[in-house]
Amino acid sequence: MPIVDSFDFSSGTVLARKYEIIEPLGAGWEGEVYKIKEIKTGIERAAKFFFPHRNKGNKTSCWYAKKLHKLRHCPILIKYHTQETINYHGFPVTFLVSEYVEGELLSHFLKRQPGKRIPPFQAMHLLYYLAAGIESIHLMKEYHGDLHADNVIVRRYGLGFDLKLVDMFHWGSAKQENIYDDVCDLVKLFYDAIGGKKVYAKQRKEVKEICCGLKRSLIIKKFRSAGQLREYLETMEWD
């Protein structure tokens, strides 16, 4: 099995006689994501190409496709369309085609803000919409497994956030620990959004009651699921 750490597709490359590469969108442990265009319709899509040594027997790509299909009614997730295979330097490479979501990565959004952070009250709105989105996944007895600022797309913000999650990670069949991991990742995203360690000591008590000092045992004792976190935010008092 060849080891590939980058496909390095150039703009204009035609794949499977159906798609044209527009630009790279990101890369990770499993593969690379590109913005592509359907040649016949001009519709823009996103395509995730899996490194062959990370996708032996297409196990990873099939798991990913099946999970996206199972969770297709969860509005925070991108919508999966189809699976394709191309010949890459003499060996098959699988890629998944999904909807292309316009927006800005949360990591980039935060870097543009004054002090590279957002006010606590706005961050609570961000956390609320993230928790509500993850709740829909948890209710399906599933988990995300890879929540961080580079996997959250901000489509709109103001009174509320319109968010999409990209990528997931397979840690095996869903267990309560996976749910806890998602909850702790949600709290960490909130913590980072308000400025992290350098400003945490000066934060209001309402903020610290959510972050719990980032201590996992305290977080999962207080919030056993994304739904409990959402409910807490809906009923908390802001003095």
Rank of each mutant, 00 (worst) to 15 (best):
V4D: 05
D5Q: 14
F9S: 03
S10I: 09
L15Q: 01
K18R: 08
K18N: 13
P24Y: 03
P24I: 00
A27K: 10
R45Y: 15
A46Q: 01
A46M: 01
A47N: 04
K48G: 04
H53W: 10
R54S: 06
K59M: 08
S61W: 02
S61T: 03
L71M: 01
H73F: 10
L77A: 04
L77W: 00
K79F: 14
K79S: 12
H81V: 13
I86S: 06
N87K: 02
G90R: 04
V93M: 03
S98R: 07
S98P: 05
E104C: 10
S107D: 11
P114V: 05
P120Y: 15
M124N: 06
L126S: 08
L126I: 07
L127D: 08
Y129H: 13
A132H: 10
L139A: 11
M140T: 07
Y143H: 09
L147C: 06
L159I: 13
G160Y: 15
F161D: 05
D167M: 02
K175A: 15
K175L: 15
V183F: 07
L186A: 06
L189R: 02
Y191A: 08
I194M: 12
G195N: 03
K197S: 12
Y200W: 00
K205Y: 02
E209K: 01
S217M: 13
R224Q: 04
Y232V: 05
T235D: 15
M236G: 07
M236F: 12
W238N: 12
